[in-house]
Design a protein around this nucleic acid. Structure first.
Lengths: 238, 238
DNA sequence: ATTGTCGTTTTGTAGGACAAATGTAATAAA
DNA sequence: TTTATTACATTTGTCCTACAAAACGACAAT
């Protein structure tokens, strides 16, 4: 008798008013077809029209503020900002909340992207880009402090992302930093002789981008990163 | 005279207390080495120790709540939850806040990923995976309603993501749906004769995965998607 | 034409109040 | 002694009021 009265137990977690307001606002933004720069109603107006206190509204708006979806000033009120996927991710994803396995996977993702973006690179690359890339490489030559190395790696790979002409992807460079820090930290904890040398360096990549083919580039990029997969650390975790 | 008087103007935007508290808490979480399930101090304690009002604390906590980083109950207080990157993304990224150009870029990103993940696919694929993939293809044969097509496309490509054994990437299928809907919507708005037929179908991809090489697969995948780049719509927006 | 002053509006922050949930201790009942 | 009930205390969730700070408009002063 008793068991049939609760066939599927519903957690029945009432949604908080803040969550509801958040949803409401998302719908509101969409339906209202807001353009970046448009002003929202004031907090009081929102509160009255949704029949909640200004506090609740503010807690919901605080979330959008974190995402960089809105900005607000005294007296000016609240405006919508052009939403950028990866700048939002950047705000949301602090490396400190990412655990090792997630970082590991992000590193793998990064490799996939850099191999996969080869087509876009060859489609958009200009002689000027080639020049800039070589400049980046030359400016690092000789220098080999580990601090400089991170900056160098980041500036080189960031530039590739830029050449792809995909802004969303370009925003990914924030992750780049996270992942680089992570990988470099591992490298620093590994004895030198256990780190195999890179098989393909940046200059080879650039030269391929200048005169080679997409497939060749993809193969080179794969080899460029393959070093890491031969390290014990990366094998162990997979 | 005028132009030299403002070489670099700093906007000097003071950070709001909520932003500061958010940062503080992130550091606090990290330094304190919290485990999932651990209890945080009460809101009042946090407020007092940071010298701000409970309102400010709550606005900051509201952000973490959106990310699924904490959960709170009356009397029980606030606990940390195990952070999951993509459950956070799902909360944060409502398709409704993505505009067309972002969707367009996401589509491009998707292609990059599917080309770039070839190495991971060949590394991890099993005979059983091949079988499952062929099964998916066969189950669609004959069927050609546009509704079914989306499901079919999603189930096929999702399975590829799954084979990559990268959970973070697998979480991307949430986006897949968004992007597919977007692309299919475009297709439906385009006259039939203007949609070039796919040059490479799913079966060719699977057969390559079974017997071919990484490079071949990448080339096939590129051709698989190249159809879209020949459509006016995609040319126009780039 | 630039600068300064005075209202006004709106966000940012503080703090008080109370209901609801929930865990704890005390008490009554078996 | 064990179990059920009751009363109490704590903490979040929500509402409310208040006021400072910034931004804007209008208008005056130099």
């Amino acid at each position: 008798m008793k068991e049939e009265s609760k066939p599927t137990i519903k957690p029945v977690q009432k949604e908080s008013m803040v969550d509801q307001v958040e949803k409401n606002l998302r719908i509101y933004f969409k339906d209202h077809g807001f353009k970046p720069g448009d002003a929202l109603p004031t907090e009081m107006e929102l509160a009255e029209s949704m029949n909640v206190s200004r506090n609740v509204i503010r807690e919901a708006l605080s979330r959008f503020r974190m995402l960089g979806l809105i900005s607000s000033n005294k007296r000016k009120g609240i405006q919508l900002i052009k939403f950028n996927l990866f700048s939002a991710l950047e705000r949301v994803l602090d490396p400190s909340v990412l655990d090792k396995s997630t970082l590991h996977e992000l590193f793998e993702l990064r490799i996939m992207l850099e191999i996969g973006m080869a087509n876009a690179l060859f489609r958009n690359v200009t002689p000027d880009d080639i020049f800039k890339l070589k400049e980046i490489i030359h400016s690092y030559e000789g220098n080999d402090g580990s601090k400089n190395k991170i900056d160098y790696e980041i500036s080189f790979h960031s530039y590739l992302y830029k050449v792809s002409k995909n802004e969303t992807l370009y925003g990914f460079q924030k992750y780049l930093k996270i992942v680089f820090d992570y990988v470099l930290e591992i490298e620093s904890q590994t004895e030198m002789h256990k780190i195999p040398p890179k098989k393909v360096d940046h200059m080879q990549l650039v030269e391929c981008l200048e005169n080679g083919t997409v497939s060749e580039f993809q193969e080179l990029m794969h080899q460029h990163f393959s070093t890491y997969f031969e390290m014990d650390f990366f094998k162990r975790n997979h």
